[in-house]
Each structure stands twice: as C-alpha cells, then as structure tokens.
Design a protein around this nucleic acid. Structure first.
Length: 773
DNA sequence: TGATTCTACGGTCTC
DNA sequence: CGTAGAATCA
C-alpha cells in the first residue's frame, strides 16, 4: 500500500520524512492524526523499520488508543508483526520506572519500583496532613492552590530551597517549608505524584547513562503529538530520548496551546527551530473540517494574539452558514435556547452529533436541565469520573496499602473506614510518633503496638487492624486481583457497612464496587498484575471515557481538544466567565483564553453558535449579575455573524418548577443523565482497553452475596434465572439496561437495573414489563 | 468514639 | 447549591 496516496504536498512531505528533526505545524483540522499514523505505517512498510523501534507519545489515553487502532488497520491488521509503542507521557514514564527504575534509588533514597502514584486527591490529603503538622489551616492557602503552586515549581525545577532562599516574606518561607515537607513525605511513602512520574524519569535517564543509551537504541524514531502542550520536564524527556539519533518529529499548533496553567511552555514549540538548528519545518494549513465561515471567524479571533508564528488556514469547503450569535436574558434562557435549537437540529439532521462547549464545568447544570425538558439524551464529559468516587478510591486505597504499606496517605484513608474504633486521638498519636522517628504510619503502628504504647481500647482495635492487613497482604501473591478485592471488601467490613444501610446511595455504591471487581476480573484475565491495575486506575482521565457516538455531548473546551462535531454551541461568552476572570489582568493568560476560544470554534464542521447571557448568577441564591459580552464576540467579523435576536417570550417557561423536579430525580438517583459513568460505559471502557479489537460483551456483574461465606464463591455460579444480575433487559420506557442486582424470589423479585441515560432504577419484576434483550 | 447536625464559605481548565 | 470542618449528642 502506498501511504503517500491521497495526501496534499505538505502532508506527503511529512509522511515521507525519514531522519532528523522535524517540526510539523498542523493547524486545526488539517489531517494531523492521519499524517502521524501514515508516517508510522510508511516507516514500517517502506523503510522496513521494526515496529517496536517507533515511539509515539500523545497526551491522552484516548488519543493513544485511537492512534494505535489506526496504525494497526493501516498495517493490514498483521498481528504477527510487533507494533509501535503508542503511549501517553505519563504511562510511558510509569512503565519506564517500573521496569527499569531500580537505579533511581541511587539518587532518590528509599525508592523502589514498587512505588505508588498519588493523584490530586491524595496530594490534597497529604497537604492536609502537613498543614496539621505545621499547625496551619486552609485559610493560609487553599489546599488546591498550594497543590498547583507546588506542581508549578516542581515542573520548573524550582526546589524548596530555591523558594526558601528567594523568599521575601514570612508567607513565602512558610510555603517553602510546606513544599519541603511535601517532598519528604512523598519520599517516605515511596510515592510519586504526577509531576514526579515525569521528573524522576528525566533524572533517571540522566543518571543512568547505560539505560539512556539502551532507550535511544530501542526507540530510533520518536514522535510527539500536541507538542504545544508539553512542559519543561516533558521537553527534557524528549531530548533525552532522542539524544543520539535526533530522529524526532514534533507535531503541534501554537494556536491550540491551552495548558499553560498546567505548566505547558509555549516556548517549546516557538523555539524548536533554535533548539534543533537543522530542523525541517512543514506547515499544514489546509483545513478539511470546517466551513469557510467558521474557519475565518476562528482565525480572525486568534489573529488578535501576539505570541504566535502566524498562519492562515484555508479550505476548499463552501462558505456555509454564518456564525449564529444569541444574546439571552439570563442563563436559564441561554440553556433553553441551546436545547431548543439542538432539538430542531436533531430532527432536521438525524444522526448528526452536537456538542455544547463551555468554559467551566458548573455551566453544564443548566444546560442539562434544559435538555431534559426536551427529553434529549446527552453525555456530560468530565466532572466526576468513576475512579473519583469515594467508595472506589477507598477500595483502591486498601489495595495500595497491601502492595505498598508505606503509602501513608492511603493508610490514613482506610484506617478507620469503616469505623473500627481507631479515633482521632489514636491517629494523632501514630502520626506524631511517625513524624518523630521518620517512619511511615504503618511502621509506626507496628512499633507502637510492639511497645504496648496504646490505651487498651485503641490497642485492641489497632491489633485487629494490623492482623487484618497482614492476613490480606499474605494472601495477595496467591490470588488474582479480583479475589483480593473481594477479600478486602469482606474482611474490612466495608461491604457489610454498605449493606447495612438500605439507601439508594449505598446500593449504587455497592454497584460501583462490584463494577470495580469486575474490571479487576477482566484485568486479571488479560494477565495484568495488581500494580498495573492500579496504574491504570491512576492514569485514566475523564475524557478517555468519551463516547463519540453520543448524539449530544456536553464538555469543557479543554476536553474538546482533538474532537470535531457537525454542530457546536459555545455558551457563556461573557467577560469574567470566558475569558475567565482570573485571566483578565495578564496578557499572556488572555492570549491563552483566546486560543481556547479558537480551539472551541474550530471544533465545528457545519454550524457554530455562540451564546451569552445578559444576567447570570454566580451561584444559587446570589443575585443575578449584569454581564458584559465577551471581547471574543466582537473579534468575530460582523459580516460572518448572523444575529439570532432575542427569541420570543414563549420559550420563557417556568424553569423553576422544572429545576425542582430534576433535582428530586437527581437526589433519588445518582446517575440521572450521567451516562458517561453508567455501568455500560465503564464496561465498554475496560473492554476497549483490553486489546485492539473491542468486544461488546454483556457486563458481568457479581451478585451481592447473601452471606459473607458466599463472597468467595466463583462468579460463574450465577443464577440461570431470567433477569439475574448481568442480564440485558429492555424496558418500555427506559430502553435497554443491565440488571445489577436481584433481590427476592419469583414474580416479587426486586431488580436494580442500570439504564443508560436514566440511571439506576429499582423495579418489581412482575410490574415492570421488562423483557429480555 | 461515632453519628448527626450546624455553620461558614466558596468556585477555571486537568495529565 | 455543595462541601468541609466544628459542634453536639448518644
């Protein structure tokens, strides 16, 4: 197959590029992914480069999955040939450190390849603990703010000492102390945060020259996607990986750099030519996605930025509709306008996807409510993901502790959860002792118990806790992951705790936990270790679970990067919201907001709507505030605008009663409308991660055991009865769903069923009128 | 000690 | 409105 066929001249040149550095400036919708995948296939087929010698790095798992699939199908699905490594930065680094990280112990005392990963919740928990230690509270500096401050310093290579030395006031030096403690505690717990994964990989490759040489030999060709969003650490990593051969292709678009707040350094792309003097540069400027009007409008907006290389995308597509701009009286009306137009669009263009984009997640709420009015199903991308749910994190924390007892933050999370008589004072005692002796909490508990230092009640509680953990630890090597998880649920009393309260909430929690066990079963079947399972849980992002087949998607503009939709609405174009208030006083941040606007606008293929409200309330109860239309609206050339005047009053319905009704449903039912974390999606998600050919198979949901003794019973001992847990059913009103749980016998049986788009429903079998799917 | 209620306060984007 | 931490009661 000729991989150069059907390409325009610039694309062809990029695909054919063989050796040496290349900067590929690929505008929005210019066929970037196609070029990358074709280049990989071209290297393999035409130049006989062995697959494993090629490394392609992307930013999200989703992008990596997609790329892997596309390369695979380009290469004719030849399974015999080993494929290139397509990975995210973070998973690449985890892999590096787990496999070849032993030598890192030389420069990071206490490090073992058994390390645990701290996500942002863990980071916050750690900071809380440090605040407590230093006698501070979050009025000093909000935990999250402290978190991002530390992260920022870390990725810039500014250590606690540097901060301390340059501190001008007591607050700054105190922050240096917090930062210092934070780093120490991470080391003590043998844990790495997200920044560390990258940083320590860089340090390892610098330190271990043999390893570096080995990786240079192994990955002869390196490609980096979304290069404009790399930070300094990632930049260093890239350099180290392409150190000896310089066969490095970076693909990016400075106009789409939207992660500056996360440390992305736009200079990486602007300075590439300086850093690699002989770099070839190719520009892809033909857009294949949007109409001429959309493209011109977006280009006109971003042209107001100063810090850019400057390019002008063109298209052969037709002019298309003008950009619809709508001014709503308030946010409710804005949401209704959007829902109403979506409703019309979906009737006029069945099967076409629509996206509603916004700056901040909280904006989704009103749009959701309006869409429900129209009985339209939608998917919210982002927000709370499966792995962020408290019960899921709890169970994973148990697993983390079993694998790495020095992980004190996870230990803290589970030590009295469920309540087992280890109270505040005992925990304080343990923490103090650990602090004084530079021990992990686990070692502190063991030591204190051996010394008999606890009061009698605490002593017995802690002894029981220790015994339980030790038993579980001993069993881990002999079990599969799912067995371990089941053991934890049983022995810790967690399952009992949830089962003892019969609220819909605890029901759904049990459902989530069973789902996690399920995922573990599948991971075990794929031969994954418990550590790999945890790594996966730590590194998945919300946007990874995005279902592109969904008719209506609600998502932030950040989440929308790399996606395209025939119809796009961007809501809330108001000064202070978009551009966001925190960006108003910095020119650089304002430019990033504008790039974000550009990213949002260029997602649209056929028709783009921009909406804003005259009044909006900041949060519930506060009075609506007058809003100034966003400056970005004025930057769209008037000739391209179609003003969608104030819609007649008849859409002015009573949203308040509507909201109340919706809120009631939400209360009863955790899942309403949030199909992204329905059982089906989660299952599909895991199925897809299994291999190149996703198989849609019915979820295997473990039935809630009647007695603890049944907990260890194998899954295949499922009831043969119709509508048992795991069977697919269809309901006259809710459509297809999956039975999660069955209680009782015969016709009186109560079923808990998860319906995508409607959530968990409890039904009596004989009344429900459900049938087998 | 643990469960429940009360109160104060606050919010960008997220690998 | 949510949430976190304090206060209160069993």
């Amino acid at each position: 197959m000729d991989f150069l066929q059907g390409m325009n001249p610039q694309q062809r040149e990029a695909v054919a590029h063989l050796e040496g550095p290349l900067l590929l400036l690929a505008g929005a919708g210019s066929g970037k992914t196609r070029v990358i995948t074709h280049r990989i296939a071209h290297l393999v087929e035409t130049h006989q480069v062995p697959g494993p010698c090629i490394l392609a790095v992307t930013f999200t798992n989703k992008a990596a999955d997609e790329m892997r699939q596309r390369v695979h199908s380009l290469l004719g699905g030849d399974r015999g040939r080993s494929s290139p490594l397509v990975s995210t930065f973070h998973s690449f680094c985890v892999r590096l450190l787990r496999r070849d990280g032993a030598k890192l112990a030389d420069i990071r005392p206490g490090f073992t390849r058994n390390f645990t990963i701290y996500d942002d919740d863990d980071q916050v928990a750690l900071l809380k603990s440090i605040y407590r230690e230093l006698g501070l509270d979050d009025k000093f500096l909000a935990y999250r703010a402290a978190c991002s401050w530390i992260s920022h310093n870390k990725s810039q290579r500014i250590g606690p000492q540097d901060v301390y030395k340059s501190a001008q006031d007591p607050k700054a030096s105190r922050m240096a102390v917090i930062y210092d403690r934070y780093e120490q505690r991470l080391r003590l717990a043998n844990s790495l945060d997200f920044d560390d994964l990258l940083l320590e990989s860089v340090r390892l490759l610098r330190h271990d020259t043999d390893l570096r040489a080995q990786y240079n030999r192994r990955f002869e060709f390196v490609m980096i996607d979304e290069y404009q969003d790399t930070n300094r650490t990632q930049y260093d990593l890239i350099r180290l990986l392409s150190d000896s051969h310089k066969n490095i292709v970076v693909v990016g678009d400075e106009d789409q750099s939207i992660y500056g707040w996360r440390g992305a350094d736009i200079r990486n792309i602007l300075d590439f030519e300086r850093d690699y003097p002989n770099a070839a540069v190719i520009r892809l400027e033909q857009n294949y996605r949007s109409t001429k009007n959309i493209l011109e409008a977006a280009s006109a907006v971003v042209a107001n930025n100063k810090e850019r290389k400057g390019k002008w995308l063109w298209t052969e597509a037709g002019t298309g509709d003008r950009i619809g701009i709508y001014e709503a009286a308030d946010a409710e009306n804005e949401a209704l306008f959007i829902a109403d137009n979506i409703d019309k669009l979906m009737r006029d263009f069945p099967g076409q996807r629509v996206a509603v984009l916004y700056r901040t997640n909280f904006q989704s709420r009103q749009i959701e409510e309006a869409l429900r009015r129209y009985n339209r199903q939608y998917i919210v991308v982002g927000g709370f993901s499966f792995y962020q749910r408290a019960e899921v994190k709890d169970l994973l924390a148990y697993l983390k502790v079993l694998l790495s007892p020095s992980d004190s933050i996870s230990l803290l999370r589970i030590i009295n959860n469920p309540a087992r008589g280890i109270g505040k004072s005992s925990i304080e005692q343990i923490e103090q002792f650990a602090l004084k002796n530079e021990l992990s909490l686990w070692s502190a508990i063991v030591r204190l118990l051996d010394e008999g230092a606890f009061p009698a009640r605490a002593e017995s509680a802690l002894r029981a806790f220790r015994n339980m953990l030790e038993d579980l630890m001993a069993a881990v090597p002999k079990q599969t992951i799912d067995e371990t998880l089941r053991q934890i649920l049983e022995r810790s009393g967690y399952q009992k705790m949830l089962a003892s309260v019969e609220t819909p909430e605890s029901e759904s929690r049990i459902g989530n936990l069973m789902e996690l066990v399920n995922a573990a079963t599948e991971a075990a079947e794929r031969g994954e270790s418990a550590t790999e399972f945890l790594d996966h849980a730590a590194l998945v992002a919300d946007s990874d679970s995005l279902d592109e087949q969904a008719g209506i998607s609600l998502l932030t503009m950040h989440n929308a990067k790399g996606l395209e939709f025939p119809f796009v609405f961007i809501a809330g174009l108001e000064e202070g919201l978009f551009p966001h208030s925190r960006s108003l006083d910095s020119a650089a941040q304002m430019e990033e907001e504008r790039r974000l606007c550009y990213v949002g606008m260029t997602r649209a293929e056929k028709k783009l709507f921009l909406t804003h409200a005259k009044f909006r309330r900041k949060f519930f109860g506060s009075p609506p505030e007058r809003c100034i239309p966003s400056r970005f609206l004025k930057e769209v050339p008037r000739a391209l605008v179609q003003s969608l005047g104030v819609q007649s009053r008849n859409t002015n319905v009573d949203l308040f009663s509507e909201q109340r009704e919706v809120r009631e449903t939400v209360k009863k039912n955790l899942y309403t409308g949030k199909t992204y974390d329905s059982v089906e999606n989660i299952n599909q998600f895991f199925a897809e991660r299994g291999g190149p050919a996703p198989v849609a198979r019915p979820p295997q949901v473990v039935q809630q055991p009647q007695r603890p003794a049944a907990a260890a019973a194998p899954m295949q001992a499922r009831k043969k009865k119709p509508f048992g847990a795991g069977s697919l059913v269809s309901h006259p009103k809710y459509g297809r769903g999956t039975v999660l749980r069955r209680e009782g016998e015969g016709d009186d049986a109560k079923l808990t069923v998860s319906f995508p788009g409607y959530g968990l429903k409890k039904l009596i079998e004989k009344f429900a009128g459900i049938r087998e799917e």
